[in-house]
Design a binder for these strands. Sequence first.
DNA 1: ATATAAGATATGTGATCTCATATCCGTTAA
DNA 2: TTAACGGATATGAGATCACATATCTTATAT
Lengths: 241, 241
Amino acid sequence: MNSLDPTKPRMRTLAPVDVTTIQERVYQSLRLGLLKGEFLPGEQVTIRGLADVLGTSPMPVREAVARLIAERAIEQSGPRTLRVAPYLATEHENYIRIRMQLEGYAAERAARAPRNPALIGELRRHNDAMSEAVEAGDFEAALAGNQAFHFELYGAAGYPQLLDIISTLWLRTGPIVASARRDQALFERLFRIGVRIHGDAIDAVAQRDGAAARWAVNLDIRSSHLAIRKFYKTSVEAPAR
Amino acid sequence: MNSLDPTKPRMRTLAPVDVTTIQERVYQSLRLGLLKGEFLPGEQVTIRGLADVLGTSPMPVREAVARLIAERAIEQSGPRTLRVAPYLATEHENYIRIRMQLEGYAAERAARAPRNPALIGELRRHNDAMSEAVEAGDFEAALAGNQAFHFELYGAAGYPQLLDIISTLWLRTGPIVASARRDQALFERLFRIGVRIHGDAIDAVAQRDGAAARWAVNLDIRSSHLAIRKFYKTSVEAPAR
DNA sequence: ATATAAGATATGTGATCTCATATCCGTTAA
DNA sequence: TTAACGGATATGAGATCACATATCTTATAT
């Protein structure tokens, strides 16, 4: 019997394989693309087109898109047309008010939640990363840092369901925020303000001051909203509904 | 030329035909069924089974179910199993807190919105219908009246997007609330309390007192939650996750 | 009698095909 | 030159088929 003896126990090097469905991977990919600003608000998409880009058949894309339609991140603009949710001033303003309610509440709960020793450090780390990215002019990284900061904070509230709803709202407003970064000067200013407000939020959490945490997050949301509104007012006109 | 002359103008009796997709009708049907309590929390469903009941093929059902999964009304409990969202005490409690934030906010805004002369009358009408249904022991009608009252109120806030999110939350908690009506005595008591609280809410709106409206709605949500928790604690145990 | 294994059934996932129709483009007639 | 008609193309919706596998049933062996 040599070393190839099949009855002899030996080390296996096979690793478990990714068993997630194609549909799920398509969904996650589209979701990430929306949050990273790879789609413009109002941009038309087609199921077959996405399937080609993603290297799969239309079938999994259809169902991933159906989920995104349910989350209002993609909408049917006509009988046979799909598009990324467009920027509409009043609609976006409504979402901002809803976000202030929910994210403000999440921040308040996070500040009042049982102390997690690592939380403050993590928040600072995300905010520092965002700050450095802004100064380096890397707006994609700044966007990612901003997102990481917010979700670290909201996650500390200990409400998976709340986090889930907030994620959906970010998915709707993501392409709008991300595409607005094309105005570099405006967004540099915006992100610098954001970094400072995040600092206030961190202080509020450190002092377990729920009201102050809520206030800081609401200020952050509102100030970013104002910048985005200015961007869209002065540059792009929203596509017709 | 007789009366069948095709050149002679004549009255047409053809009415427009329903052009909505099967998928959309399946979705609306499932949605209504969930809100009316035709599904039990944790109940298993199959795509082919639903397709048979609805008299269609699995295809439109698949995509309608995908949307409901995105809304967390249906979930995948295993590799090849779908079920209606089950009752889980802490998860449900989290949803209750989120609903208090959002529905409280909606009520506050509704009370402070520009006066709609018909609103108070509509609210009273829904609440009276609910009250009569409770006394008649018609819990399905009472449930419908309760829903109509809440959405009439929240709709008056003038935030379609907020209404949409609240609808999604009701879709998740709908089967839980609806199935709990099986304990008649408990729910008779609950609905009677609800009718009274609704009266307080109507008064708050009539006086344009946003804080009072928020308070009334939050009390309504919380009291119904307590009744449901009691029901599930004393009767049914939630299916294992 | 019980436990294990083999076979049958059920079910979600994905691919492929068909269909209706919206959209685009070129041709033709006024 | 312009507008209207018609054909080609693109696209979402739906049906059908194929596949892998989880679950249930049944038979057999201990």
